[in-house]
Design a protein around this nucleic acid. Structure first.
Length: 424
DNA sequence: TCTGGGGTCCTAGGACCC
DNA sequence: TCTGGGGTCCTAGGACCC
């Protein structure tokens, strides 16, 4: 059996933990650049039926009328709260697969002697007591069914956030209950195509011939189909695999027509991803750079282009990567457009000890590697970008994204600790 | 005027190589 | 009238997840 534990309205809940004055009140969290709504707590969802990913400026009046508190996203806080939850889960099973910032699978095999229902409640109660975060728990024979059990735990009356799918009757009842789009892995497009042939419930999906599923939904669909029938097909991976791609692409705080500012943002993003690359002790073979204009705009001319370049030798050296990325950017940049975003992507990622030089280009000598290591240590000690490539420039405020309503980083910055007591 | 970011997996076609 | 087979690399797009 596999348990799936998932935090309720995770971002909104994190914000509320530190704001008792907001308990029981509607709260939403906004995307980067405060562009749209990415999380809403139960109260906010009930109150206004706020569609997720709706542009903030379109629904601002609804938020204000209903006194909904909104926050810019504070990933430092969410990431750290997530670690606390995962640490607690580690006390419940030796095998935990962290699936996302707010979800994990627990291997519950070999715990047949336990009362799984009581076990589920213990997880829920311990996490709440230690972190203040509410979670739901679903336990079932496969990952896809555990996700479904988790959904039942939250959506059906009377389960109190814990649901155990431990019999064939319960599995069939769940499939009967679930709409096809409730299934993990079946998104908008597959729902449309399945509806078109008269499939609306999960139970109808598992009755489809496998050949149809395989042909129309590839091997991915086949795995879902089998998992829903109780046959495990998805791996359980407790040790996270090294990333195959590391990228970042953030909208600018304002539209940028000129190459100079875009170059600086590009260099900055490369510094960020190169740091992640070094932290996982890897090197990248390819660098991709892309630029886009605002595709929502009806008045602006549209343009987007990407370019991938191969590094002479796979590397994780910020300076080497910036220099190649810059060439790629020059290649695709065209004047006369208002750009909204530049993105970078490192691919062809290999462990750093596998990097091979060639006859004409030597691997970076030890002193260069030591320099980069010092670079990373300084930034850890004194904060992000304390030392950086000169290519980043000094006018970050002209392109960086906007976070007007960010909450304090309560758990990671001494200066932003929660204060309790009378002011003054 | 304002519309997110970071990922994975799969498929297919074109260019090119031998 | 007839026009290979096996492979890599790159790009692009579609689907999905949180």
């Amino acid at each position: 059996m596999i348990a799936m534990v998932d935090c309720n309205s995770f971002y909104a809940s994190c914000e509320q933990v530190f704001r008792p004055d907001l308990w029981g009140k509607p709260v939403v969290v906004l995307s980067n650049n405060d562009g749209c709504v990415i999380a809403a707590n139960k109260e906010a969802k009930q109150l206004t039926h706020i569609p997720m990913f709706e542009a903030v400026y379109k629904i601002k009046h609804i938020l204000e009328k209903n006194k909904v508190t909104f926050f810019s996203s504070n990933y430092t806080l969410y990431g750290e709260m997530s670690q606390r939850v995962m640490n607690i889960l580690g006390t419940f099973s030796p095998n935990v697969e962290v699936y996302s910032i707010d979800e994990a699978f627990l291997d519950v095999d070999g715990m047949a002697h336990l009362d799984l229902r009581a076990y589920g409640f213990r997880i829920k109660e311990k996490i709440f007591r230690y972190t203040g975060l509410p979670v739901g728990v679903g336990i079932a024979p496969t990952k896809v069914l555990a996700k479904l059990a988790n959904r039942l735990a939250k959506k059906q009356e009377g389960h109190d956030q814990v649901y155990i799918m431990d019999t064939e009757e319960k599995r069939l009842a769940a499939l009967q209950w679930a709409k096809i789009g409730d299934i993990w892995g079946i998104g908008r497009n597959h729902v449309r195509r399945l509806n078109a042939i008269g499939i609306y419930k999960a139970i109808d999906f598992v009755k489809l011939p496998l050949a149809w599923v395989r042909k129309e939904m590839t091997v991915v669909g086949e795995r879902l189909w089998r998992e829903l029938r109780g046959e495990p097909c998805l791996e359980f991976t407790t040790v996270p695999k090294p990333k195959k791609a590391i990228g970042t692409a953030k909208s600018f705080g304002q539209k940028l027509p000129d190459l100079e500012r875009i170059e600086e943002a590009c260099a900055y993003y490369i510094s960020e991803v190169a740091e992640v690359l070094r932290a996982q002790k890897s090197c990248a073979t390819y660098v991709q750079v892309f630029i886009v204009t605002n595709y929502h705009s009806k008045v602006d001319k549209q343009y987007s282009k990407s370019k991938t370049v191969k590094m002479p030798i796979p590397t994780n050296d910020t300076f080497a990567l910036i220099s190649e990325a810059r060439k790629a950017l020059h290649h695709i940049y065209k004047p006369g457009y208002r750009y909204k975003k530049v993105g970078v992507n490192l691919t062809g990622i290999i462990p750093q000890e596998y990097v091979q030089g060639n006859l004409f280009q030597q691997l970076p000598e030890t002193s260069k590697k030591e320099l980069i290591r010092t670079f990373d240590r300084l930034n850890i000690k004194f904060g992000k970008s304390s030392v950086a490539s000169g290519m980043i420039g000094t006018r970050i405020e002209e392109w960086e994204l906007i976070k007007r309503e960010r909450s304090p980083r309560y758990t990671t910055q001494w200066r932003e600790l929660l204060k309790i007591g009378r002011s003054g």
